[in-house]
């Protein structure tokens, strides 16, 4: 069985199957754009929450952490209610499109990025801030130092969010409809192969996805390494 998987995976790569290439491009587009948009919202939100003490901060953090357990299908269905023809945004025709999937994914990972950014800030925060202030930094300057010192944690949040989207099935199926040539992604194609009983091909696609993720993570590692010098 497992050598079949390897043979299938190799075959997919060397034949440069245009269908599989399409799934990969779609999966990466969705993951990249979603991570980008969610990062623009989630990182500043995380920094704000992490740097300030305010009444109800604990409650906010608890809610964020709870949202990490949100099933992807629930996110997908919630967005479906809005973008379906019956829903308030039905006229925008977002259902069964890539932008429709992206909306769902963004909502899925905003809590993830925010929560991990908050965690990254609080890990380094207090000590770094005290040190910076002791060394004569202004309050604003101290804030900035904390953010800089938390950058690896924030990068980890981005990587985790990207991984969540690229490996996710529920949102992509409900909002995308798994339509060939339009919204079929690596993971929904994989699920379809499972439905068809093509387990070896499904696992081969899984390996391919993992390989792509590996190259992206190596790229991130490189960026991170560059930052350390």
């Amino acid at each position: 069985m497992f050598d079949d998987v390897l043979r299938n995976a190799w075959h997919l790569v060397v034949t440069f199957d245009p269908d599989v290439f399409g799934y990969a491009v779609r999966s990466l587009t969705i993951a990249t754009v979603s991570t980008l948009v969610a990062g623009v919202v989630g990182i500043p939100a995380g920094i704000l929450i992490g740097q300030h003490d305010f009444a109800g901060k604990r409650a906010v953090v608890t809610i964020l952490n709870t949202l990490l357990a949100l099933p992807t299908v629930v996110v997908g269905l919630t967005v479906y209610m809005f973008v379906s023809r019956q829903g308030p945004l039905g006229h925008l025709e977002l259902l069964f499109t890539v932008p429709g999937i992206i909306i769902g994914e963004v909502l899925l990972i905003i809590p993830l990025i925010t929560a991990l950014t908050v965690a990254a800030m609080s890990r380094t925060g207090r000590d770094v801030r005290k040190t910076a202030l002791a060394l004569g930094a202004s309050s604003r300057r101290a804030h900035w130092t904390v953010i800089c010192e938390s950058r690896f944690g924030i990068l980890a949040a981005i990587i985790a969010a990207f991984g969540r989207v690229v490996s996710e099935v529920g949102v992509a199926t409900i909002l995308g409809g798994n339509i060939d040539r339009f919204t079929r992604t690596m993971t929904t194609a994989l699920v379809r192969y499972v439905d068809m009983g093509e387990f070896a091909l499904a696992l081969a696609l899984g390996m391919l996805l993992l390989t792509i993720s590996l190259s992206i993570n190596i790229l991130f590692q490189f960026v991170q390494g560059g930052g350390q010098e």
């Binding site: 491009v25 587009t29 990249t32 990062g39 950058r151 981005i158 960026v223």
Partner: peptide
């Protein structure tokens, strides 16, 4: 550095978008 990462993501995203558009 974060900005660099983000702009990198943006470039990849736009490239992919235009190619499967």
């Amino acid at each position: 550095m974060i900005r660099l990462t983000l702009s990198l993501l943006a470039t990849v995203g736009l490239a992919a978008e235009s190619c499967c558009g």
